[in-house]
């Protein structure tokens, strides 16, 4: 977007070609779409009819707000520092994340490990499947048609748009989550982190490294 084209200064977003991006419906916008009004109307009706309760909706909101990529970072840092945990994680990821109190009752988690030879990156080309219990709600770009359409056929170009350049001898493996599995990338532990504690390591692991669009940078590069 060009600089002279800013209409909403704080909340301005490029719309990608399919207008797939979330429009910037901020609470302070004065123009509300039909669908925003519809959402409010249905919420009121569903509560009045007892289909859902206001408490249930509030609890679901709080639960979602409580899930951040820090959940995933804990799992990654433990996998880096505890070989027995790492083994459990790749054998049964649902059970391994449950050790941190992370419950994934309806989806099957699969952890995939980045190595010297393989770099994993996750997408859902059909919708927005994402390990929400570990990373929270997916970012706008993950749901965009731009990412979903391109990462399966030009993953290296897409990774470069995230600043990630991988050598040719590394296999780029794209996971298209088309069914009941949700994928968590276990990024490579960077050099120069030998003496760091699990807590210190967690802080290095960002959301995007667990989707696989970036790699974990050593602390000196931060």
């Amino acid at each position: 977007m060009s600089d002279h084209d800013h209409h909403h200064h704080d909340h301005d977003h490029d719309h990608d070609h399919g207008h797939d991006h979330a429009h910037p419906f901020q609470d302070d916008d004065k123009v509300h779409s039909y669908y925003q009004i519809l959402g409010q109307a249905m919420k009121e009706l569903l509560i009045e009819k007892g289909v859902v309760t206001a408490d249930e909706v509030r609890a679901a909101l709080e639960r979602r707000d409580g899930i951040t990529p820090a959940n995933g970072s804990k799992v990654v840092a433990r996998a880096w520092t505890d070989p027995a945990y790492r083994e459990r994680l790749f054998k049964d990821a649902n059970a391994a994340v449950a050790e941190f109190g992370i419950d994934m009752p309806t989806t099957h988690l699969v952890a995939v490990e980045n190595t010297e030879d393989v770099h994993n990156v996750v997408v859902c080309t059909l919708c927005s499947c994402y390990p929400r219990d570990l990373l929270g709600l997916p970012p706008a770009w993950y749901k965009s048609k731009a990412y979903r359409s391109r990462v399966v056929h030009e993953p290296r170009a897409v990774l470069e748009e995230f600043g990630t350049a991988l050598p040719d001898d590394v296999e780029v493996r794209v996971h298209d989550s088309t069914a009941d599995m949700r994928y968590l990338v276990i990024p490579r532990r960077p050099a120069g982190t030998h003496g760091m504690s699990e807590e210190q390591l967690r802080a290095l692991v960002s959301r995007d490294t667990m989707i696989g669009v970036t790699t974990v940078q050593p602390p000196s590069a931060k």
Binding site: D16, A22, F25, V123, T125, S144, K145, A146, R150
Partner: peptide, 20 residues
């Protein structure tokens, strides 16, 4: 079902979800 098509560059901007 968009896999394999080309919808242009990925905009990595963060979008803070609204309350709505």
């Amino acid at each position: 079902d968009v896999g394999g098509l080309d919808f242009g560059p990925v905009d990595p901007a963060e979008h803070e979800l609204t309350f709505w």
